[in-house]
Design a protein around this nucleic acid. Structure first.
Lengths: 213, 213
DNA sequence: CGTGACATCCGTAGTACTACTGAATTTTGT
DNA sequence: ACAAAATTCAGTAGTACTACGGATGTCACG
C-alpha cells in the first residue's frame, strides 16, 4: 500500500492554451501520466479506445462532438475510463446530464491546482467529485426554492396555456378548459413560440419544465 | 496559501466503537480537529448549533433521530456545516435523499483512511464527494441499462424514433437522421402510439422519459 | 384621454401529423 | 429452413397545428 498508483490521464479541450496550462500544471506531479490530448469529442472517443486511460479530463462545449455526447459514447463502449468534466459553466442541466450519463466528476475551469489534483485522484478511485461551485449551484435549487431565472416575457394567460400544452393537451382541450376559442389558444401558443423560440410542442414542454409549470 | 486550514470535525454515530475508531484514525492528522461527538440525530443538531463545525461526519441509522432528519434540521437552521454521511448501506434512495437534503458527501463504513481524509477534505472545501462504492451503485442504474419495468413492446428502432421525438424533432428531421423516409417514421410513430397509448407528441415524450431515453 | 400591453376572436393558406390499409424486404428465432 | 417479427415504403383522407395578417374590448398609467 505504500506505492502510489500511477494515473493515466487523457486531456480533451478545444483550446490549445488551456490544454497546455493543464499539462504544465500536472507535469511535475509524480503519479499522473498524460497519455494523450485531443480537441473534440470524436478524438476523445478514439483516444479512449486506444489508450483506455484511467481518467478523461474533458471540456463540454467543443466542435464536432461535444463532451456529453462523447461521454455517452465512451460509456456505451463499456470502457472503464472515468470522466471528469472541466467546464466554464456550472449549469445544473449540464451537471445532472453528465452524472446521468455516468460521469464521475465536474469542476469549473477556475479550479485551483490542489483541487484539480484532488478531483483527478478522487475520480480515478471511482468516487464522484463535484467541485465547490458546482456543488453549490446544484444544491441552491433544492435548498431555497429559486424562482424563475428566465421568464421570457410570458403573460399569465400564456403561462396557463403553456402549462396545459406541457401536460399534453390538444388546443381543442385547452380551449374547452379555459373556456375560450381554439383560435385564441392558437394565438397564445403562437405568442409563446415567438417569445420562447420553441417550435415544437415537445420543446415547449421543456420550456414549461424550466419554468416549473 | 502555505498554511493548511484546520478542519473542525463533529462525529455522530450510535456505536461507541466506531466513533473511537474514527477518532483514533484521525487523531494523528494535523489539520483535523475533533470538536465533539454525539450518538444520535438530536445531539448532532445540538452540537452543530453550539460548535458550528466545518464538517459533520454522521451515520444515517441512529436511534431518537436519524441522520437524514438531523441533516434536514441542520440545513434548515442555515448552518454552514457540511454533512458527510457514513453508512453501511449504499442504498440509492438514501444517497439521493441525502443529496437532495443538501449533504455534501456519502461514504461507506469500509472506507480506507486515505479515502476518508480525502472525503473530509473535499467536503470541507464545499465539494460533493461520493465514495467509489456509493458512486458505483448510484450509476449502476443509469450507466448500464437497468430493468425496464414497463417497456411496452417497443422494438429498438421504435425506441430510437421515440427518443428523437422526445427531443423535439420533427418527423422530417428524424427521417433525415435515421436515413429513412418520412412515411417510415410515421409508421414507427404510429406503432409507438398504439403500444404506449400516448396520442400527443408531449405524452410520447413523457413515456420516453419513463423509459429513460 | 391617448397609448400600450393584454386577452379575446377570425380568415386563409400551408405544413405536420393521424388513421386506416396494404405490401415488399430483411432480420430473427427455433 | 420456415415462420414470426421487424423494418421499410406508399396511398388517401382527415385532423391538428403554423404562419401570416387583421380586429375588438379592457384596463392601467401618465
Amino acid at each position: 500500500m505504500t506505492s502510489i498508483p500511477t494515473i493515466d490521464l487523457l486531456i480533451v479541450d478545444d483550446h490549445d492554451l488551456l490544454r497546455e496550462g493543464i499539462v504544465a500544471r500536472l507535469s511535475d506531479v509524480g503519479n499522473i501520466r498524460i497519455v494523450g490530448q485531443g480537441c473534440n469529442g470524436k478524438e476523445a472517443v478514439a483516444l479512449c479506445k486506444t489508450h483506455e486511460p484511467d481518467v478523461l479530463l474533458m471540456d463540454i462545449s467543443m466542435p464536432e462532438m461535444n463532451g456529453l455526447e462523447a461521454a455517452k459514447e465512451i460509456k456505451l463502449l463499456g470502457l472503464k475510463t472515468r470522466i471528469l468534466f472541466l467546464s466554464i459553466y456550472d449549469d445544473n442541466e449540464y451537471v445532472q446530464e453528465a452524472l446521468r450519463i455516468g460521469a464521475s466528476g465536474f469542476v469549473l475551469k477556475d479550479v485551483s491546482k490542489p483541487e484539480m489534483l484532488n478531483a483527478i485522484k478522487s475520480v480515478s478511485e471511482g468516487a464522484i467529485y463535484l467541485g465547490p461551485k458546482v456543488a453549490a449551484s446544484l444544491q441552491s435549487r433544492t435548498g431555497t426554492a429559486q424562482p424563475k431565472v428566465k421568464d421570457y416575457g410570458l403573460t399569465n394567460r400564456e403561462k396557463q396555456v403553456l402549462a396545459l400544452i406541457a401536460e399534453g393537451h390538444l388546443n381543442k382541450e385547452i380551449a374547452y378548459r379555459l373556456d375560450i376559442s381554439i383560435r385564441t389558444v392558437e394565438s397564445h401558443r403562437s405568442a409563446i413560440r415567438d417569445k420562447t423560440g420553441g417550435g415544437n410542442a415537445v420543446t415547449l414542454a421543456k420550456v414549461a419544465r424550466d419554468l416549473g409549470l
